[in-house]
Design a protein around this nucleic acid. Structure first.
Lengths: 250, 250
DNA sequence: CGGTCTGTTGATCAGTATCAATGACAGTGG
DNA sequence: CCACTGTCATTGATACTGATCAACAGACCG
């Protein structure tokens, strides 16, 4: 993902065990409140970072797919404030936190790479905040599928136009902020309209450009035209601000 | 904010200008798609990071208050993917990006501090994702007010139990993912129930503990009891998972 | 002053949640 | 091999949160 010196490359010598560890599905990798002693480089399988509220509501704030590191935020001191559990059987390499932490204090290249990685993650989260914050159920799910597919494609984890998709509708719902019932209906619409196929834990993107349009998604973040100044054109309606910050709707 | 060597301390020698710069209210600090040439240490005033969708929907993903750096994510290469505009008149110190970037490659302490800062920001965003993703309008606004007050308190920007609050209801709405009309009604409920006072750009927390309860907020992240294992107790209803990840509702 | 923005309230509507029931399927143990 | 169990996807009926539309008053500003 990074260009010159990725975190993955730099932490290579820190892998504690020669053999990656294996976890069964639906096992906790960490529980909220625990102190992480390591981060995991995920070679295979999926997991989810989530939080439970007292009344049972659950929200998933992040999925980890093969190639992800789970979780960089554990490198700041203190207890994990969200839990992580595997969704499928998982194979992951353990990277000892103490050793990584110690090296970070001396190795500028590693610190730089880690900062870059963290900042990139921040950008992704900021984008997803916007999606959760103001898009419809259909847009949220379409956006999620676009993004997921592109992420897996960059890692060579897609075949033709399809990829593994081990998530239940409950998982999708908890990630996109809706109920599983509504996720079900929304997915059905997407399938009925012919933009995706989804069965037996496999997702196939039939019409990517249409999915992108349905998502109000832009891989290069093209949503906002940002014409030269956008000035001089006021937007109508309640959601209006001063001209220089509110280009006209289109 | 950090303990030993904060970013703020480390970037001290990088401040490009002796005098901080001033901006008027409602001016763009950056527009989406532009290449940032500096980050800003905000001494006084407020601003917002946001994104506009084609149809005019706006979502604010972050407010910057005095003491914040706007924005760390600009240190990764490439164009800004969200815009930032001032909400009030602003006084900020310019920190040249090229110089910061150059120093980052050699200075392990700076890289470490920056990484810590970025990771802390990630954690905040992940928490806010949960809030936006699964809480009610009243909970979201209450949560926001709790958090804002605590953040300002840490920086000594509160007096008694009150603080400046220059945000319009439209700003609050765009941040918490609702309409300004609904934000208005929700704020009114909070005022009517006597937990806050809010007038003439000043917020007063009358009953903090009740506000916390209304927010399902926990400053120390206490929402999830995370009893020893949480195991053996299945939760009812649609939003159910395996026992080890789903402690009973309460 | 006259325009613009903000806060406010009321009436109505749409999107999504909730509740309930069912069928398909996988895993388990007798 | 088959009943038993639990999970998951699905559908229908209904309820409710929050959006939308409309109108107006006060504050602020040129």
């Amino acid at each position: 993902m990074s260009n010159v010196s990725s975190v993955l490359h730099l932490i290579e010598p820190l892998k504690s065990e020669t053999q990656p560890l294996r976890f069964r599905a639906r096992q906790p990798l960490i529980r909220r409140g625990e102190l992480p002693t390591a981060v995991w480089y995920i070679e295979d399988g999926w997991s989810a970072r989530f939080k439970l509220l007292r009344d049972g509501r659950r929200h998933i704030s992040r999925f980890y797919a093969p190639g992800d590191i789970c979780d960089l935020s554990w490198l700041v001191a203190g207890a994990a404030d969200q839990s992580v559990m595997t969704l499928t059987p998982l194979r992951a390499v353990r990277i000892d936190r103490t050793r990584l932490d110690a090296r970070l204090r001396n190795d500028a290249a590693l610190g730089f790479a880690l900062a870059r990685e963290a900042l990139a993650e921040m950008r992704w989260q900021a984008e997803w905040l916007v999606t959760i914050g103001c898009k419809s159920a259909a847009e949220r799910i379409a956006h999620f599928l676009c993004e997921l597919y592109l992420r897996l494609e960059r890692r060579g984890k897609t075949r033709e136009t399809s990829c593994d998709f081990p998530l239940s509708q409950q998982d999708i719902a908890d990630f996109t902020g809706m109920t599983s019932v509504h996720a079900c209906r929304t997915l059905r619409e997407l399938r009925n309209s012919g933009v995706i196929e989804l069965c037996r834990r496999r997702l196939r993107i039939v019409d990517f450009s249409r999915l992108v349009r349905m998502a109000a998604f832009d891989a290069n973040y093209l949503e906002e035209p940002m014409t030269a100044a956008g000035a001089g054109l006021a937007a109508p309606g309640h959601r209006t601000a001063t001209p220089e910050c509110r280009p006209a709707a289109c």
